[in-house]
Computed example of a mutant assay.
Amino acid sequence: MQRTIDWMDGSVVIIDQCALPGTYRTLRLDTVDELIDAIARLAIRGAPALGAAGALGVVLAARAGGAVSEEAARVAKARPTAVNLSWGVARALAKLPEGVDAVLAEALEMLDEDERTNREASRLASEVVLDLCGRRPLRLLTHCNAGRLATVGWGTALGVVWHLQAGGFVDSVLVDETRPLLQGARLTAWELAEAGIPYRVLPDNAAAAAMSRGLVDCVLVGADRIAANGDVANKIGTYGLAIAARHHGIPFVVVAPQSTVDYSIPGGGSIVIEERSPAEVTHLAGVAIAPPGADAFNPAFDVTPASLVTALITETGPHPA
């Protein structure tokens, strides 16, 4: 299976997530500018995939010569909330004194490591889910996309679904559409269909109603940045899901690699939240759905307090330990 992001013949090669589900295509990115554009328009997205993109951005900069550190800083700032992006840049940049080949070797190791890490995190999380819910076919609810498209090649929260399905423990998955850019309806549903797992897409504002009707056994989400105290920044709408899950007594489980934990931030109040263009809200597929000139509040992420998280699992186990 093709990786979401990879290095091939001197170029960064990605699955273009803006084209799915209608078209499956790959893009070759040969410059830092092309990589930054792909990150900004979400052709590359998902915290672990962004970590890989950060490292490969340093490779592109180092191979081009010039002010590598300045170019690397531009990559790191392309999206401010996902800590993996700056983490990937810093890790690859640390190898620059050893030469371009050392930078590339580090980036390639990070690609392999990402898949191993997320397989282990999701494996551990799948056992936590079964402990919480019982070893039976489960009705799961997801938000945004935390599958292979959000990582190099496996997935975090959706990786849990792959493990549970292999054991015969998935009844079906409810997929939040994830407004305004529909990563759930476009990407998660596509991955589940590809895997042959029963699913239904639902509007984000129907999730609480589904819980109230007994249609959800567990909520599974990923994360873009985790504060030292366990507060979780994830796609906008995650906080509301956590509140609804707590009200209905449903486990709310977060799955992410350890690299997503930012120990420099004590709590979620210090996490910078990216705000995106109002046009993403006021337009749908290029068609206006609000009056001309309408403004919009369009944060890409929100912060869920650790007190609402039933379990937060990385490849090393529960966090905070």
Rank of each mutant, 00 (worst) to 15 (best):
A92P: 12
P320T: 01
H248A: 11
G184R: 01
R179T: 13
L60E: 09
T260W: 04
R276V: 00
G66L: 09
P266R: 14
T31M: 11
P292G: 03
S69I: 08
R41L: 05
T26K: 13
A73C: 10
A244Y: 09
T310Y: 03
L56Q: 12
P291F: 01
P305V: 06
L85M: 06
Q2S: 14
G88D: 06
D6Q: 12
L50M: 14
V173N: 06
L284P: 02
A228P: 03
P203N: 13
T304V: 08
V255I: 15
C133Q: 10
V152F: 04
C18Y: 01
P299D: 07
A82N: 07
A150Q: 10
S69T: 14
I226K: 07
C218T: 05
Q2F: 08
T151P: 07
L181W: 07
A76G: 14
A19M: 12
S277R: 14
L27T: 10
K77T: 11
P320Y: 02
A53T: 08
R74P: 11
R79G: 04
D9K: 13
T142G: 02
A294S: 15
R119M: 10
G57D: 10
P299H: 04
G54E: 05
I14C: 01
S212N: 09
H143R: 03
A105F: 07
A207I: 09
E177M: 00
E127F: 04
K95Y: 01
G54Q: 07
A90H: 14
A105H: 06
L284H: 14
A223H: 11
P305S: 08
E106K: 05
P21V: 06
S270Q: 08
A102H: 03
G196P: 05
V254K: 03
A206K: 07
P48Y: 08
L130G: 09
A52M: 05
A242L: 03
V152E: 06
T117K: 07
L138T: 05
V68E: 11
I243N: 10
E109N: 13
E113V: 00
L284V: 15
G286A: 03
H283A: 02
A223P: 12
A49Q: 11
S270H: 01
K95I: 00
R179I: 04
G22V: 08
R225L: 00
A67P: 14
E71F: 03
T4G: 11
